[in-house]
Structures are given as C-alpha cells and as structure tokens.
C-alpha cells in the first residue's frame, strides 16, 4: 500500500497542487490571489503532462552530442557537428526507449506486451536498423528488447522507416524537413507503447542506451504555459482596470458596490 502511494508520488503532487489551486481560487476574495491560485492549478497540469512524458532514467529530450560521438564507431556523424540538427536526428532515433516508458496509470496488460516485444525484436533488428541507428546502438544484441517494443505497435514499422530516411537525409545534407518527420515519428511511436513495464527500461538504461523522455508532452505543455501566461496577463490587466474603476480588488467589496449600483444603497443595507 505504502509502496503504491510512494511510487506515484508525482501524481500526488499533481492532485495536491490542483486542489490547493482550486481552493485558493474559490476561497480568496482578493483578485490577484485568485490569479495566483489559478496559476498553482495550472502548474499542477504542467507537472501532470511532464509526468506523462517522463521516463525513469531518461534524460531531457535534447540531443547529447558528445555521447553520441563517442558511441558512434564509424565516422558517420562527422562533419555534422551542428547540435541542433543532430538533436533532431537523435530524438527521432530514440523513439524506442521513450516508447518503453512505463505508464503507471494505465491498466493495459503489461505482460502480454512484454512477451510480444521479445518475440518480435530480432525481426526488427535485422530488417529495419539502418546505418544511423546501428552506429548509435552500442549493444544492439541485448538492448534492442526495448526497441522491439516500439515495433510491436501498429504502424510502427512504417514510421521507423520514414524516420530513418529522415536520418539518412540528415546525415547526407541537412534535410531539415526529413529530420522533423523523424522527430514526429518518434513522438508518435513513444506513447503508443506507453503501457510497457518499467523494468524494461531499467534494462535498457543499464546497457548504456541513452534514454530520452517523451518530448511531445513537453511541447504541449510549453504551449499550455504560453496560454497560461497569456491568461494570467489578461487577468492581471483586468485586476488593474478593476482597481482603477472601483478602487479595490477585494471581491466582497466589489460585490457590495455592484449591489449599490443595482438596487441603490437601501438594497445593500437590507442585504446586510
């Protein structure tokens, strides 16, 4: 029981923040404090989305150039030292470990998926891995268990191909669009496998695989943060205007003043 709770500590944080935020919005009369409450509430959503994308042992979805170079046995990546471009590349390639991210909330059968992975990975191994990926994987033999997982997902193979094409283009001459596609491929594939077990990932990590967290929720939440900031800005601007118009930002005082405007002073007295 305790383990159950502790394992999901991030969800507890989300829930606590969410409730705290809503409570502040509800209970505080000060308009600015309401906005603060709203922000706390929204923060909980950010954390929630980050949780979705988080993979145990995974690093931020930013391409780590040096590691990659070290791992590349061939000179494939040479001359493409641009971190930005290769960052895309790597993200695309690393759909596999992301896909292995275990999702605690999901009830989907872990075992069956797991076995499926084991059945399929050799196949994947042989057919699909092209130069870029091969160079990237230091220990395909053991580590690809995780990669296989990606391939089990319907349509995954296609996407992988697409992605590799992108990677090739990238290698050849910086085809940004192709790289983008590759990224997207990775993005898509990752959550498809979101139901896989956590230990799979641990195994992958121990084999020296670079594990990136799922970038899509991060992208989403960046958008949501922008929206949230805009909302906060509008809210605060309104608070400023309200203070100009009423001389206060306390809700009960505002209400009393509105009542006077509507029913006259007598109405307020009666109400009180």
């Amino acid at each position: 029981m305790l383990e159950f709770i502790l394992e999901r500590y991030n969800y507890w944080i989300v829930i606590t923040l969410m409730m705290t935020g809503l409570y502040i919005v509800y209970a505080r009369g000060n308009l600015v404090k309401k906005i603060v409450g709203l922000n706390v509430f929204q923060t909980s959503i950010f954390i929630f989305y980050i949780t979705i994308g988080k993979i145990a042992g995974g690093t931020a979805p930013i391409y780590i150039g040096d590691d990659l170079k070290k791992m590349k046995e061939g000179a494939h990546g040479d001359g493409h030292g641009d971190d930005h471009g290769e960052g895309h590349d790597a993200e695309g390639l690393h759909d596999t470990p992301e896909g292995a991210h275990a999702n605690d909330l999901s009830d989907a059968g872990e075992e069956s998926l797991h076995s499926k992975i084991e059945n399929q990975f050799p196949d994947v191994d042989g057919n699909d891995l092209k130069t870029a990926l091969q160079n990237l994987e230091p220990s395909e033999g053991e580590g690809t268990e995780v990669e296989g997982l990606h391939e089990t997902v319907e349509g995954g193979g296609k996407i992988a191909n697409q992605m590799f094409e992108g990677a090739d283009k990238e290698a050849a001459g910086f085809d940004v669009a192709g790289a983008k596609e590759a990224v997207e491929g990775g993005l898509h594939a990752a959550p498809d496998a979101a139901a896989a077990a956590a230990q799979t990932m641990g195994a992958a990590a121990s084999h020296g695989e670079i594990i990136y967290t799922n970038p899509l929720p991060h992208v989403l939440i960046l958008t949501a943060i922008v929206v949230g900031v805009a909302g906060t800005a509008v809210g605060l601007a309104l608070a400023v205007r309200i203070r100009e118009a009423y001389g206060t930002i306390e809700e009960d005082e505002l209400e009393a003043m509105d009542n006077v405007a509507e029913f006259g002073a007598a109405g307020t007295e009666r109400a009180q």
């Binding site: 989305y49 999901s106 809210g235």
Partner: peptide, 29 residues
C-alpha cells in the same frame, strides 16, 4: 468584474479540458 469572473471560470474549464486530453493521450498516445 464579469470579464474577470469569466476569465477564472473559463480558464478552469479550459484547464480541465487539457487534463482530460492529457489522460486520453496517456491511454492512447
């Protein structure tokens, strides 16, 4: 004040929607 109230309620509504979409994403990817 009514715009402010709408902002609070509307933002909560939109946030709930995002949470819902997030949960669906978690389930389906």
């Amino acid at each position: 004040t009514s715009a402010f109230n709408y902002l609070i309620m509307g933002t909560i509504g939109a946030s709930f929607f995002v949470i819902g979409v997030g949960l669906l994403y978690q389930a389906t990817g």
